[in-house]
Structures are given as structure tokens and as C-alpha cells.
């Protein structure tokens, strides 16, 4: 018998009660158990940033936490932002307008990295933005359009 652990987590303001095996990664829990597939998984060793989510409001790698560790914590994933194209978060709207994405694989992790960043740095410089997204790999955009999108978002969110 495989031992499981009971956890209760608040994800995007909704409460979930689950039974999980200790070795289940938080990223796989979100995607496979809860169907929250907005959180992407690229490398599973902390390098690519695709799996970035908020844990109690701070950006973290969901591939480097176990689901069982999320017991009692508050998780926010990209699904908490705008749901469709008429209801986008200003950050998402800016990514659209400034061409901050192509294939979109890296986008959820980048958005979840930037939400707390813009909260703490409402008027960021280009250099600060580049440091903030240094832990997120994008294979398409060459980053310049992402930087432009963040500058635009900061403008919109003033």
C-alpha cells in the first residue's frame, strides 16, 4: 500500500482537499490531479521557469516543491488572471499588444513571475525587468518584446 497524506490547499481562492503521495510534485498535482494545466512544465529542475506560481504571494518553482508541502498554503496560478480575451489582466493585455509571446509556452511562468515584481516595482527600469525575468527561458521572442510588454503593463497599471 502506498502511503498518502491529506492536504488542504487554497488555489486561486478556492479550497481543495486531496490525498497525495509524498513524492508528487506540486506542478504535477496542479496539472494532473486538478486539471490546472496553465502551469507549464519544461525542465523539472528549476532552470526554465515555466512552472512558476505564487506561494503565499511570492513567485516560486512548482516543480521544486512537493504537493504535500502546500498543505495550508495559498497558491495562485495563471488561471487566476483573465479568463478570456475580453477579460484580460492588464499584464496579459500588454503581452498581447506588445507581442510578448509567440508559442506561449513560457508565458504563464513569466506572468506569475511578474505579478509580484510589478507589485513591488510599479515603475521598473528595463534593467530591473531583465533581472526579474532572468529565471525564465523563452525560446521564441528574444526577450525584447517581453521587456516592452512589461514596460507597457507598468504604464497601464499606474
Amino acid at each position: 500500500m502506498i502511503k498518502t497524506y491529506s492536504i488542504s490547499t487554497t488555489i486561486n481562492e478556492k479550497e481543495y482537499k486531496s490525498e497525495v503521495e509524498s513524492r508528487l510534485l506540486l506542478s504535477d498535482f496542479l496539472r494532473h490531479e486538478l486539471g490546472l494545466t496553465g502551469t507549464h512544465v519544461g525542465c523539472e529542475h528549476g532552470v526554465c521557469g515555466a512552472c512558476t506560481i505564487l506561494v503565499n504571494g511570492e513567485s516560486m518553482r512548482s516543480c521544486l516543491m512537493f504537493a504535500v508541502q502546500a498543505d495550508g498554503l495559498e497558491i495562485t496560478t495563471v488561471e487566476a488572471l483573465g479568463k478570456d480575451k475580453d477579460d484580460l489582466h492588464p499584464l496579459q493585455q500588454s503581452f498581447w499588444e506588445a507581442h510578448g509571446l509567440q508559442c506561449g509556452f513560457c508565458t504563464p511562468g513569466i506572468l506569475m513571475t511578474l505579478i509580484p515584481f510589478l507589485r513591488e516595482n510599479p515603475d521598473p527600469t528595463e534593467k530591473e525587468i531583465r533581472a526579474a525575468i532572468s529565471g525564465n527561458l523563452c525560446r521564441c521572442t528574444g526577450y525584447q518584446h517581453i521587456v516592452d510588454a512589461v514596460l507597457l503593463a507598468a504604464e497601464k497599471m499606474k
Binding site: 528549476g46 521557469g49 512558476t52 506561494v55 511570492e58 513567485s59 516560486m60 518553482r61 521544486l64 516543491m65 513571475t113 515584481f117 533581472a131 526579474a132 532572468s134 529565471g135 525564465n136
Partner: peptide, 12 residues
């Protein structure tokens, strides 16, 4: 300290 990894890694 800012040279250690990325902000998301330093948060944890």
C-alpha cells in the same frame, strides 16, 4: 546575495 540564482529560487 543577488548573484545567487534567480528571484524565484531565492524566495525559497
Amino acid at each position: 546575495v543577488p548573484f545567487i540564482a534567480h528571484p524565484q529560487i531565492r524566495n525559497r
